[in-house]
Design a protein around this nucleic acid. Sequence first.
DNA 1: GTAGATAAGTTTGTATTGCAAACTAGTTTT
DNA 2: AAAACTAGTTTGCAATACAAACTTATCTAC
Lengths: 102, 102
Amino acid sequence: MMSDLRSLTEVDRLLHEPSRAVIVAILATVESADFVFLQRETNLTKGNLSAHLTKLQEAGYIQIEKTFRGKYPLTLCRLTDTGRQAFQAYRQKLRQFVEQTK
Amino acid sequence: MMSDLRSLTEVDRLLHEPSRAVIVAILATVESADFVFLQRETNLTKGNLSAHLTKLQEAGYIQIEKTFRGKYPLTLCRLTDTGRQAFQAYRQKLRQFVEQTK
DNA sequence: GTAGATAAGTTTGTATTGCAAACTAGTTTT
DNA sequence: AAAACTAGTTTGCAATACAAACTTATCTAC
């Protein structure tokens, strides 16, 4: 396992975007979260949240289920196993960088 | 001090680029480093290294001195106090994120 | 019953990037 | 004197992050 400073350059770019890292960090603590909840927690605009969720879904990191709460749309998101593993690897990469630097 | 998950979205974007974080991490360990040394250590192309160094300089994070080694150009880089402080803050932000997530 | 506000999203427009490839200027080798 | 090497800088382009505009449906006030 290569473990020098420059291994940070191989970091997962999808998760290295702070907004997405925060979204995934939240999803790592709950079994699922809806769009409105995520928007309140992240402070993102609806548009940007939507775009980030789509990217996470395309990468297979989250699963999105579209349904209804009463008469309104409900978008439920949950972290996949792939997503959880990627997030752990990402945290590990950050941890190593922080520990290896001064 | 705000210290929840979403404070990661306020991370220093200049340092949050892995290539630049690595450059700065290297410069944090030496009093100065030249272009050729940095290129070997980072594995960046000359073009991209040049561009990243220019950005770090524009932000006041590094100081660049152009001189000569014998007959060849020598570009010496050193971290400024501002740059060192920014890097410490960046490391702290990463550390907090890693510690606050699961 | 219809005009306007609200809910829950998606799509579009744009300016900024990170990266690869091309270029520059001088020096050494053949 | 042509080719190759050194030490960089500039250019071209595709990707992306964010804001603003748009969509579709529901609720409220008149």
